[in-house]
Amino acid sequence: MVKVLFFARLRQQLGTGEVRLENFSGSIAALRDALCDQNPAWRAHLCDDNIRTALNQELVATDCAVAGGDEVAFFPPVTGG
């Protein structure tokens, strides 16, 4: 099981902050595509070039591999401070 989190504007656009995927293995990019196949309305938001990705709470590129037990997050550029 892979836990997938969404934050801020993206969370609002998708209408959810968390989904879980069973039996997934592949890259973050493949995971994103799988989510967009399940929810076609998400593609415009989730596949935006500005969206950042984290794997197990560290910023990574979308070619990173995901395995069961991992936590993946998608979010817009950060605006703290």
Binding site: A54, P76, G80
Partner: peptide, 12 residues
């Protein structure tokens, strides 16, 4: 501060 502004996951 410069790193926090661009990396730490906060959103206003």
């Amino acid at each position: 501060m410069d790193r926090l502004k661009t990396e730490a996951p906060f959103w206003k």
